[in-house]
């Protein structure tokens, strides 16, 4: 799984710039899919995002998660990679990385049978 962390695009860029990023992201995903390595993915819009926490044994709901960190999860895709290196190579092509401070986290998915 490749998890993107970045700032809310709407706060830092024009709609035209967002369009460009969208196209780059679609082309990046299309390139992975063209190698038959794409499984699924989702963008996670920042609108209406909430965080539920426990504070003093009570549930507290806040708007968020925009507190202390600027770069939050903005989406993810799941790929079929033969190795961590291959997954990292996919991640390096992610357009999100054009922004300083943005990141793509590469994680394995638990197989559900006790192994990883």
């Amino acid at each position: 799984m490749l998890i993107f962390r970045h700032q809310d695009g709407k706060e830092v860029a024009s709609p035209e710039q967002i369009q460009v990023w969208m196209k780059q992201t679609m082309d990046w995903i299309g390139g992975i899919a063209a190698q038959n390595k794409y499984v699924l993915g989702n963008g996670l819009p920042f609108d209406d995002a909430k965080v539920v926490m426990t504070k003093d044994a009570k549930h507290v709901v806040t708007n968020g998660p925009f507190g202390d960190i600027k770069e939050t999860i903005g989406g993810y895709i799941i790929v079929k990679a033969d190795s961590v290196e291959e997954a990292v190579a996919f991640a390096k092509g992610c357009p999100v990385l054009q922004g300083e401070g943005n990141s793509v986290e590469v994680r394995k998915i638990a197989k559900g049978d006790g192994t990883h």
Binding site: M26, D27, A34, Y38, L40
Partner: peptide, 28 residues
């Protein structure tokens, strides 16, 4: 070609085939 490219990008996500991958690259 931009439209065709995006359509192939989507098509490959739901139904991969070698010919679609090649056509997508041509559109690219």
């Amino acid at each position: 070609w931009e439209h065709i490219l995006q359509l192939y990008n989507n098509l490959l996500q739901i139904a991969y085939s070698p010919i679609a991958a090649l056509n997508r690259t041509f559109a690219l």
